[in-house]
Every structure is written in structure tokens, then in C-alpha cells.
Simulated assay, not measured.
Amino acid sequence: MSVLSSMPAATDKDERRRALSAFLRSRRERIQPEEVGFAPGGRRRTPGLRREEVAQLAGVGVTWYTWLEQGRDINVSAQVLEAISRTLRLDRLERNHLYTLAGIALGPARSENIALPGSVQKMLDQLSPYPAQVLNSRYDVLAFNDAYCQVVIDVDAIPLEERNLLWLTFVSDEWRCNFADSDSIKQHMVAGYRVALADHLGEPSWQDLTERLLASSPLFAELWERYDVAAPSGKLKVLNNERVGLLRMEAVSLWLSQLGQVRSTVYTPADAETEAKLRLLVND
């Protein structure tokens, strides 16, 4: 028997720990000490921050962080991962990757993030005063412009893990949108989600979102049991904005095919009165 064949096979957990170790080290080494307030001088064996510096900035023990980066089997909390994410300046996609490797669920609407090119955000910004957003097939909000925040819902103020339109519509009282035809919109959203789910059956993040919605919203559960299916619709939508009153808008969906099942939805005014109100809201 060879030496290799006599070694125990690596488990999925072992592989995840090794990946976590390599990922943390790579993110740590890309940050220069002077970027976070440390003196640049002194001899450093590796580029970027030292482990003890990361631990200090994140407010965790040096030994604990060292064990984490070494891939040891230790308990990790979401709060500590959040502190490490901020310290290592992780973007949204990197943060989600860190949570996945650590085996920590992100929350009620764990987002399936896609690294959007900067040109997509530039496009959304240029559409102002028309509200616009980018969604994936699971209704995660991946990008948006300032007009969308001012007219529809203030996504900037919503925690990253809750930026899912199904969760915001059916569960969150604080962030619920004020569409006049909300009953019809909710029915259509659930029917559209069922269509999308067919391509992701058995995937943990989709299953987690569905189970949380069913447990948290009796209305979602009721609509889910109808087994309706539908495609994205561009029908007229009426929004009751607290500052300017009713807005009549048409939702136009533009599929960003190079990014997979991702679409940009742009709300365009259906009449001159709405056009004027949009410009007042965004330019005020």
C-alpha cells in the first residue's frame, strides 16, 4: 500500500477550513499597514497586515484569530465574522464567501451575489430621475440608483442580508413598499419566484429563503400553496409616495444576459404628472 493511499480522505469540512485559511490570509496580505493606521516601518516577513493587527482591529483575541486563519476547528459567530469582514474591507461578495466557508448562515435572505461590473452601476446612475434596480431571479437586490431609494424604498438603509424583495414585501413592516395594487403584485412575485426556484431545487440558500418566508408570512404561505407560475411583468404600477402622492409608472425589465439570470428593472413615468413628481423628488 502506498503512503498516499493509506492517508485518510479529506472531508468537505477539512476542505472548507483550508479554503477559509487561504482566503483570510490573501485578504489580510492585500491591506497595507498605513491604510488602517499602523506605522509602515519595521521588518515584516509577509506583505500586508500581521495576524495580531487584524485581531486588534477586529476586537478579537490574537490566538483565536490565528487558529481561525490556520483552519482549526473552532466556534465562530456571525458577530465576529462581521467584525473581521469590516477589518479586512471585504466587499459584499467576499463577505458572503467568508460566511459560507465558515458555515454561518447570512440571515433571512441570504443573497446569491454576482460581481457586477462597474458599468452596471454607471448605467443605473445615468437613468435618474427614473428609479432603477438590478435583481437576480431570487429577488435579491444587487444594485440600485439614488432615485430608487428616494422614490420606491431606501435600500441604502437596509442591512445587506435583508435586501431581498420577497422578504421586504412579505415580512418586513419597516421597509414595505407602498404600491397601491400590492395584492396583485404579491401574487405575481410569488408566482415568479416559483418559476425561478425550479432551476435551483435542493440548493441550500434557496431552500432556506423559502422556508423562512413560509414560517414568517402566512400570506406568502397561502399564495405558495396556489402553485401559480408567472414571468416578469411590465404592467402599470401605482406607487403612493409619502412626499408627492400617487405615481403611475411602467416597469421595464432589461435582461443582463452576460451575467446569467439577472435583470435591471427601470420605472418610467406613465404620464406627465408623474414625470414632474419624479424630477421634484430626485432633484429636491
Rank of each mutant, 00 (worst) to 15 (best):
V36Q: 08
D284Q: 15
I74Q: 11
A19S: 14
S233D: 08
S21N: 05
A198D: 11
F38N: 04
A157R: 15
Q70T: 07
R72G: 02
V266M: 09
W64V: 03
Q207L: 01
A102R: 00
S6M: 13
Q261K: 14
Q150C: 08
K235L: 14
Y65K: 04
Y139W: 13
A109Y: 01
L90W: 06
I31Q: 03
W255G: 10
G118P: 04
E94V: 03
D173R: 15
L166S: 00
S21K: 05
Q32S: 15
R50F: 05
L24I: 11
Y267N: 02
L124S: 01
L24M: 13
L246T: 09
Q56Y: 15
S128Y: 01
R45P: 05
R138G: 01
P47G: 10
R243L: 11
E203S: 07
A105D: 10
V229Q: 15
K186R: 15
R51I: 04
F144Q: 03
L101W: 02
F170G: 00
S253D: 14
W255D: 14
V36P: 00
E162N: 13
D181F: 10
N75A: 11
Y139F: 15
L256E: 04
L93Y: 06
H200E: 12
G48Y: 05
D228L: 08
L197Y: 10
Y267M: 10
K13M: 10
Y99R: 01
Y148E: 06
A157H: 10
P47K: 12
N113K: 10
L165P: 00
D181W: 09
R279C: 13
L246N: 05
R45F: 09
S6R: 12
A251Q: 03
S5L: 14
T66W: 03
D125Q: 09
T46L: 08
V62M: 07
V62Q: 01
E53I: 07
L20C: 07
P269V: 06
V36H: 03
S233V: 06
V54A: 02
D91S: 03
D199C: 10
P159E: 09
D199E: 14
P108N: 11
L247I: 09
V60G: 02
L57D: 03
A196V: 07
L280M: 09
S264E: 11
S257P: 11
H97I: 04
T63G: 05
R72C: 06
L98A: 08
P117E: 12
G202H: 04
P33R: 04
E35I: 06
F220P: 00
G37S: 11
M7Y: 08
G37L: 05
K235A: 12
